[in-house]
């Protein structure tokens, strides 16, 4: 391609002639992401207070190994190296973290908020060099579609958790009966919001039909593509709502388990 020659100099970091409050959005994203990362890391390292009655925190679901009744394969495995701290969350949290880190929406948001690449539209950047996602390390963002598979599997496990959260055990008799508590609604809302986020994924949209030039003649593909596209238009909204709610779900279960909150039974 042709070279272009410029008389105007490249702008300095944060230099702009914009008059609006352009810093608000990247700052808000930076603070929200930082708060979530700090809380979720702390919660993952706790390894305790992650379940209460039929409820299991989504940070720990599915509990592959662990000490709670929700554990699928029993307690901490013997092969886990002793000096390494263990928490059931370590075995599972990498999947949703990887899915969100490589998500097209989040990429754009954190490149702006954390790297200032750029800080906001038509605002000067701190670095003159730029490689984008064209080479290592950011080329690995293309793994998003693989994380999508794990994210879809997690949705199945989280839905099972909602089903389990409908069955309460009487501590006196040990009898199990159907019920709905506030925690059930919290976990159900979490699945709905995560479902809205995961099902609106750009990679999923590509896989169900976006990659084809002709969709109309394929009876299943067209409605599926339309449905994913519909959620995709609200991808940012679901990304934020599901992020906030998954953190809130963990806080709710944790506070119940610690005895700070009493879970109300609605049914």
């Amino acid at each position: 391609m042709e070279q272009v020659h410029f008389a105007t100099p490249v702008r300095r970091w944060a230099e702009t002639r914009r008059l609006d409050a352009w810093l608000t959005q990247p700052l808000g994203v930076f603070l929200a992401f930082t708060a979530f990362i700090v809380y979720s890391t702390w919660a993952a390292f706790q390894g305790d207070h992650y379940h209460f009655g039929p409820y299991l925190s989504p940070f720990y679901s599915p509990e592959i190994f662990g000490d709670s009744p929700h554990s699928l394969l029993g307690p901490r495995p013997g092969w886990w190296p002793n000096p390494v701290p263990f928490s059931p969350a370590f075995l599972i949290l990498w999947a949703p973290v990887g899915f969100r880190l490589t998500c097209y929406y989040y990429r754009g948001a954190y490149y702006k908020a954390f790297w200032h690449d750029p800080p906001s539209c038509s605002v000067g950047e701190p670095r003159s060099s730029y490689r984008g996602e064209n080479s290592f390390p950011l080329i690995v963002q293309n793994l998003h579609r693989y994380f999508l598979i794990f994210a879809l599997a997690l949705l199945v496990f989280l839905s099972l958790d909602v089903w389990n959260a409908l069955w309460f055990e009487d501590p006196a008799t040990g009898a199990v009966s159907f019920g709905i508590g506030v925690g059930t609604l919290v976990l159900a809302t979490n699945v709905v919001l995560l479902g809205g986020y995961t099902m609106g994924c750009h990679s999923l949209r590509h896989l169900v039909g976006g990659g084809c030039d002709r969709i109309a003649g394929l009876p299943m593909r067209r409605p599926t593509y339309d449905c994913v596209s519909c959620l995709n238009r609200r991808h940012m909204l679901f990304a934020w709502m599901s992020l906030v709610w998954v953190g809130f779900s963990d806080i709710y279960v944790r506070l119940c388990a610690m005895g700070f909150v009493t879970d109300l039974r609605l049914l």
């Binding site: 097209y104 754009g108 490149y111 690449d117 064209n134 080479s135």
Partner: peptide, 17 residues
């Protein structure tokens, strides 16, 4: 290889303007 689609880091500024 030639058109550099990998350089786009999805800031969505183009969509906004």
């Amino acid at each position: 290889d030639d058109h550099g689609v990998g350089y786009c880091n999805i800031t969505k500024c183009c969509t906004k303007v």
